[in-house]
């Protein structure tokens, strides 16, 4: 489960951010997760709580999921990601490296592989809330 690796990245980045901003403690980390990442939210939340125990003991985590949307660069068509319609192996591959969607998905109108992920990719820290030290 690479949810743990992503959770580790979130805690590490939030902790560095706290240092840069002179925050003694962090009370809330708002995270946006792209649908394309197909993260198991329960595993992710559990991993965050476990990893944060030492580094950010007082932090809560608020997670929102952004629907994934693609736009074809060839014909302009936009469409949504429908992971449930894909083979489990393909879903798993996109789960690990979302860019491999370009190997498996095509524009539903013109068949082009040249599309962009307009939204719904990656894991992002939207904001952190904390208290200044000293």
């Amino acid at each position: 489960m690479h949810e743990w690796a992503l959770a580790e990245a979130v805690v590490s980045a939030a902790s560095k951010l706290a240092g840069e901003r002179g925050l003694g403690k962090i009370t809330l980390v708002k995270i946006k997760v792209g649908e394309l990442q197909q993260i198991d939210l329960e595993v992710f939340k559990f991993a965050l709580s476990q990893i944060a125990e030492k580094l950010l003991p007082e932090a809560g985590f608020e997670i929102s999921v952004e629907r994934a949307e693609f736009r074809c660069r060839a014909c302009g068509r936009t469409w949504r990601f429908r992971g449930e319609e894909l083979d489990p192996e393909i879903r798993e591959a996109i789960h690990v490296i979302p860019e491999v969607a370009h190997a498996f998905l095509r524009c539903p109108r013109c068949g082009s592989p040249d599309f962009e992920v307009v939204k719904g990719r990656g894991v992002w820290i939207e904001s952190i809330v904390g208290e200044k030290s000293g």
Binding site: I90, A93, I94, V96, V100, H102, A103, F104, P113, D114
Partner: peptide
Amino acid sequence: FFTGGKPSPLRGEDV
């Protein structure tokens, strides 16, 4: 490992 031998045309941002 993840492309299953299929071509993966990627632009810079995707790379």
